[in-house]
Write a protein that binds this DNA or RNA. Sequence first.
DNA 1: ATCCTTGCAAAGACTTTGCAGCGTA
DNA 2: TACGCTGCAAAGTCTTTGCAAGGAT
Lengths: 147, 147
Amino acid sequence: MKAIKTKLNFSKLVEVQGIAVLLNNLGLKSTKQRFAVLSALHKHKSPMTAEKIVAKTGIDLATAYRTLESFEKAGLVDKFNLKDSSFFYEIRNEHHHHIVCDKCGFIEEIETCNFEKMTPNSKKFSFISEHSLEFFGICKNCVKKIP
Amino acid sequence: MKAIKTKLNFSKLVEVQGIAVLLNNLGLKSTKQRFAVLSALHKHKSPMTAEKIVAKTGIDLATAYRTLESFEKAGLVDKFNLKDSSFFYEIRNEHHHHIVCDKCGFIEEIETCNFEKMTPNSKKFSFISEHSLEFFGICKNCVKKIP
DNA sequence: ATCCTTGCAAAGACTTTGCAGCGTA
DNA sequence: TACGCTGCAAAGTCTTTGCAAGGAT
């Protein structure tokens, strides 16, 4: 009953072998679009939608989705959803969760995950492989703006 | 730092006052479509998509979405998403979470929620009003089918 | 040279909106 | 009667797919 997501430290991998080699090792050709997606996600430091990635990189939207999908399959990127109707993507790192501001959409990463303390006992399930946990609230910036 | 979702015990409310009065008290006219949606959700006992509700009730899809939206605003129904691209709806009851089978989509309700034990400390957020927590795994039925 | 990847356009999935007619209060 | 609700159709948003041209190995 443990989370089974692979831990891949992107920064460390890049540092050691470079992006081109990293991609090649994953069976992906290194193209400028893929560099752009990785770099956008890396710089932004918080989850992005495909549309936001397009806005930052100028690549085609379909390419963005295809790139993100192949990155996800390769274990380089995680995909998840919040309350919204779009999916968010982020470079996979240590297992973590998020707090999302209901006003401005700002997303903060939370490191702590007391998974053991909240693992449910189920008579109908054989095992649990994964969980998602997101918090919603108001960030300090937005609280200021409330009259 | 507590979950603030109103606790509305649907069964009890209906028992006491009947669906028609319940709806009227919420400022909603009682129609057969609304009865149908409530009844479908109530019978099914686990979250449904709008499309599933339509399949069970025969009402129009747009009506289903509008009905669910007004129910949500009235606090009668909760809306949330899982990994999928559709939203799920369920009659609001005590705060709880779900385990979802990755094979067949079966959803089980989990009562326990150790919210206190997992509340994060954030320097960037003023308060947290809500959280979502979903587990994913394989249900016992599907495990049998694995060769 | 080969085969993967890209961009553009079209299609697909899910949800929302406009509008005329119907039904509830 | 008045106004909210419904169904149908159309539009909107997000994502995926088809295909020919382009690019990496």
